[in-house]
Structures are given as C-alpha cells and as structure tokens.
Write a protein that binds this DNA or RNA. Structure first.
Lengths: 160, 160
DNA sequence: CGGGAATAGTTTAGGTATAAAATATTCCCC
DNA sequence: GGGGAATATTTTATACCTAAACTATTCCCG
C-alpha cells in the first residue's frame, strides 16, 4: 500500500521534472536560433517571428492582430515593427475605414529576406532535432498538441 | 516510389512542427509562471531561477557559477542579484582567497521566501501539466533527456 | 620576479518584454 | 447627435537579456 499523499507528491515531481526538461530543450534551441540569426543574418528571433507571422498573409496584419498571434504585448510589437520598418523590411499602411488602425505588411525586400531566413531556420531546427525520427517527431507533436488542449491556462490571449 | 528530396523535406517539416509545439507549450507555461509569481509574490521568473539555484547549496555560488548554471550572461546575473540583494533575499560575500570573486547566497529571509515560492511553483506546474499522467511525464522526460544528449548544440556553456 | 594570458565581475549599448497610462478614434445607445 | 464605453496604438517605467568593452585580480611561464 502506498499513502495517498505520496502518490500525489510523486506525480507532481514527475511533472516538474518534465517541465524542467522541456524548458532546458526549448531554451537550448532558442539560444541556438538567436545566435545563428544574429551571426548569419544580423537579426533576432522576435524580428523573425514578426516576419513569419506577416509572411502568412499578403494583406498584412493589424498591430493588434500581430500581438495577438504572437502572444506578446502591444507595446512590444510597436518597437519591433519600428525597427523592421527602419530596415525597410515591413511597412505600416493606414487602414481605410479606421484611422486608429495600421496594417503592417512585408515589403518586397522583407518577403525575399524572410524566405532566405526561413529556409535556414528550418534547416537549423532539422539539425538540432535530428535525433528525433520523423515518426517520433510527429507522434510527440501530436501528443503535445493533445495535452496542450487540456492543459490549464489561456489557450489564446488576444486572438479575435 | 517517393522522391528522396520529398523524404528529406518531410522529415524536416515534422521536426519543425514539433519545435513549434514545444515552443508553444513552454511559452504558455512560462507566461503562467511569470504571471503568478508577479501577482502572488511580486517577483519574477529570473529571480526565482536565481533563488532556486542558490537554494541547492548553503554555501552559495560565485557569480560566474550562477551564470553558468542558469546559462545566462554574466551581466544579466549582476542585475538580478543586485535587485535580490536590495530586497535582502540574497547577500554577496567576498571569497577569502580571491579578491576578484564574490559568493552569493540566500539570506535567512531569502531561504524562507524561496520555500514558499517553490511550493507554489510545483503546484502550478502540476496543475498546468495535469493532463500528463505521472507515467507519461516520466516517459517523455526520459525521452527528451535522451534526445537532448544527442541533439546538436552546446550542452553546457560556462560550467567549469 | 616580471609581465602577459586568463579569470571574475561590472558596465555599456541596444534590443526585447511587461503592465499601466495616455492618445486618438470609433461605436453605440439614450 | 452627444457622450460615455470600447478599441487601436503608442508611450512610459521597469526589468531582462546579450555581446562586447572594461577593471581588477590572479596565474603562470620564462
């Protein structure tokens, strides 16, 4: 027989250990990506994330949509878009019917640059996670997706 | 028959999708932890991480050991320790034989505060990852550890 | 011993992040 | 149609984070 308290405590420890593992792996991949983006493209992960979000849609996204998709604060997006705009990789376009809003979209140059970076990005990930077979990657991704759905916490923050 | 290029491309896509899943989950847990630490304890995740590292050892750690364990830059640790020291949660102690080095350790108050926060922290994780059974958590953690070993990239950065 | 290489830590410059306040505009209801 | 609530974005204050430069000390080899 096992005391109930011990069962609960043990489950909790297992989940904590899993979290520490997940954190360790994701930080390592994250650090590599940041480093390579910096050295190979003179860019950063947040910039890449913004461009990736914009690349999905020729029409671009409003600032608030962008912060919703990326799940970061509004003020944060302002700064990143400011810097991308300085480099002429994105542009702010006023929204016809609403003088409050701005649509951000990739410029021609931004689209070309993103394509280059995305190709490299996928190759880096493929290299770093090369120890996963495609089958196992699919399986684990599916399992994570399934569990993420049940997990506590806001699934989406600002997506409207 | 399947074209070789297609096989390679497909594996790469699977790993990319896995990465996006991992990132999504870890960001969500991260955000929750940050939020709860802030509202419940008026603290932050980096502060918690530093205290957690120090809690393992009564003797404390040198600044460089701290940045090595946490895998963050030296300058970063300087700032976090500065702020923890202002709150009297940690203290810097000169190292007898080496006038360059400082050992950082939890104060009495810091140790007590960390114990409170760590208990809550484990409960939050347990709640957020509750969809994983302990068995599955153990299994996945083991698999991640195994793969992390093989994965490309620096396993340890500054640990000496 | 003397001096350059290595080590420990802080500082600096710039980008990323948040929450909260401020600004501007639009919506909508009475 | 006037005014308050809601929405879109920027600004502000503070903390995090890195790489690189800088200071101080220690190590070590000739």
């Amino acid at each position: 027989m096992i005391a109930p308290a011990q069962i609960a405590a043990s489950g909790s420890k297992d989940r904590l250990r899993l979290w520490l593992r997940l954190l360790k792996l994701s930080r390592r991949v994250d650090a590599q990506l940041r480093d390579r983006l910096r050295t190979d493209f003179g860019s950063t992960l947040p910039r890449f994330d913004v461009m990736a979000a914009l690349a999905r849609d020729d029409a671009g996204l409003k600032m608030s949509q962008l912060s919703g998709v990326l799940r970061v604060s509004n003020g944060n997006v302002t700064g990143i878009v400011d810097r991308l705009a300085l480099d002429k990789l994105v542009e702010r376009v006023p929204v016809p019917g609403d003088r409050r809003a701005m649509v951000v979209r990739l410029t021609q140059a931004g689209r070309a640059e993103f394509t280059r970076q995305a190709t490299a990005h996928e190759a880096w990930i493929n290299e770093m996670l090369g120890a996963f077979t495609p089958q196992e990657a699919r399986h684990m991704a599916a399992r994570l997706a399934e569990l993420a759905e049940k997990a506590t916490g806001p699934e989406t923050k600002n997506v409207r």
